[in-house]
Every structure is written in structure tokens, then in C-alpha cells.
């Protein structure tokens, strides 16, 4: 394995059998990700991008092919070993946040570390606080997850994904449930994390969102059709500033109504 490569898959196949129908979700996929990359995995729904992400995240197993994560071949691992890999080497951000409801942000972020026996309660608390500070939720640590806005919830989820110092964060349509402004805010946070050295795999179907990353991998019908560095990486922070002012939009809508 080349130096700096943290993740590599070779000749990967994934086939589902639904009744008599055979679905070839992934066919002969080869991909490697180097430390510090921010990779957008793109494609329409059914293109196999989510299947790949699940396999990269050790949530699902390939039908054929090899997968090395941080120098270890994952393919031959048992369920419990995979759980340990997920616990120590991976971070997940889901479209629907998947936070525990009626639980504070801090407790949600602590959760992965609770499953790691080598981390004591003091260190756990410190790391969770640190993660929440880095996503900008310093003042909301004790807030309950279900009393937060979507953007805040996704920030908690991102804090949860980085709390175990993973080799890669895997995000599945992480901005899919958010409005444009909040999406940009989240992307700006991802960029910030990436600039601090965190590797990110980001599944999305929105080209706009993909333009915030450093590399675009396109899927179609289970195969990679293009794999290029982003032509011109856009800063999400700058994009945010270019958005029309929300308050102005609101006012322009309200005033005519009041006149009627």
C-alpha cells in the first residue's frame, strides 16, 4: 500500500438477490483514498454510491473483492472485529442525524466512547466537550437533542463522528434534510475539519454540494464513471456570504401580504 493511503478497495462487487431478480449494486470498483482528502461520492439514486459507503463504513459486506482500512484487510473480519473497527477507526454522519432523543448533546457525543473499554469516564467527557467545541456548540452541550434545530443536530452528529479520532468520516447525504443556508454552514464545518487534517468521504447527489470537496467520484449503474480532482474548490464560507439575506427575503414576502 502506498504511503498516505488510508483506505483502498480492489475489484469490489456487491450483488443483492431480491426474489428472482439479481441487483448488481457494485461492479468491479477500485478506489483508494489518501489521508487528508475530502471525497465526494456522487451519483443518482440507485447508482451504488450508498452501497459503497456502507461497505466503506463496515456496515455491510462486499460480495467479492478486498478492502483495506488503515492497513488492515477488513474482508476477513468477524462481526465483533468489525464493530471495533467502526468504534475506533470510523465516524458516521447520517442524513437523518440518528441522535438519541431526549438526551443531551454531550451524552450523544460520548456514546461511541462508552463502547470503548479503554477510555475512562474523565477522558470521555473531555473528548466529547472538545468535539462539541470544534463544531461550534460550546454553549449547547447540555441541550436535549430533540430541542435543537436540524443544523444543530447535524453538528452534534458530526461531533459524535469525530470524537473517537477516526481515520475517516463517512457522511451519507448529510445535508439532505437541511435548507440551503444550513447546508452551506454544515459544508463549511466539514471544510474546516478537513483543513485540520480529517479525511472525509461524502455521499451526495447535489453537484453544488460536491463542489465544496477536493475530489469527485461519480457512479453510474454500480461502476465508477469518473474520478477527478474538483476543478475549482469553492469555500463554503464564501458561498454563504453570497446567499441573499434571509431577512430581506422574508420582508419582501410579508409586506405585500400586509398591504392586501
Amino acid at each position: 500500500m502506498e504511503k498516505g493511503i488510508i483506505l483502498e478497495i480492489k475489484n469490489l462487487y456487491k450483488t443483492y438477490y431480491i426474489g428472482e431478480e439479481t441487483v448488481r449494486a457494485l461492479q468491479d470498483v477500485n478506489l483508494s483514498i489518501t489521508k487528508g482528502e475530502f471525497v465526494a461520492i456522487m451519483g443518482t439514486s440507485g447508482s451504488g454510491k450508498s452501497t459503497l459507503l456502507n461497505i466503506l463504513g463496515c456496515l455491510d459486506k462486499p460480495t467479492e473483492g478486498d478492502y483495506w482500512l488503515d492497513g488492515k484487510n477488513v474482508k476477513s473480519m468477524k462481526k465483533n472485529q468489525l464493530a471495533e473497527i467502526r468504534n475506533t477507526k470510523l465516524g458516521f454522519v447520517f442524513q437523518s442525524y440518528n441522535l438519541l432523543p431526549r438526551t443531551t448533546a454531550l451524552e450523544n457525543v460520548e456514546l461511541p466512547l462508552l463502547y470503548n473499554p479503554s477510555i475512562g469516564s474523565k477522558l470521555r467527557r473531555e473528548k466529547a466537550e472538545e468535539a462539541l467545541i470544534s463544531v461550534g456548540l460550546k454553549d449547547r452541550m447540555k441541550h436535549l437533542s430533540n430541542q435543537m434545530s436540524g443544523g444543530q443536530q447535524q453538528r452534534v452528529a458530526i461531533a459524535r463522528s469525530i470524537v473517537n479520532d477516526p481515520v475517516i468520516i463517512l457522511a451519507d447525504e448529510a445535508t439532505g434534510n437541511l435548507d440551503t443556508r444550513t447546508s452551506y454552514e454544515i459544508m463549511s464545518l466539514f471544510q474546516e475539519l478537513n483543513e485540520n487534517g480529517i479525511t472525509i468521504g461524502f455521499v451526495t447527489h447535489e453537484p453544488e454540494i460536491a463542489s465544496f470537496t477536493t475530489r469527485n467520484v461519480k457512479f453510474r449503474d454500480g461502476r465508477i464513471v469518473s474520478d477527478v480532482a474538483t476543478a475549482k474548490k469553492i469555500s463554503a464560507k464564501e458561498a454563504l456570504l453570497k446567499l441573499p439575506d434571509e431577512n430581506l427575503i422574508l420582508e419582501s414576502h410579508i409586506i405585500p401580504e400586509n398591504l392586501n
Binding site: G57, L59, K79, N80, A83, E84, R86, N87, T88, F92, N98, L100, L111, P112, Y115, N116, R160, N164
Partner: peptide
């Protein structure tokens, strides 16, 4: 079940 899925995803083992 979804909560169980989350716990498994972030590294909980089946026996946990």
C-alpha cells in the same frame, strides 16, 4: 430497532 442500528454503527457489539 433503529436505535440498535445506530449503536451497532458506532461500534456497539451485538452482545453489548
Amino acid at each position: 430497532t433503529r436505535e440498535i442500528g445506530l449503536r451497532l454503527a458506532i461500534g456497539g457489539k451485538g452482545k453489548d
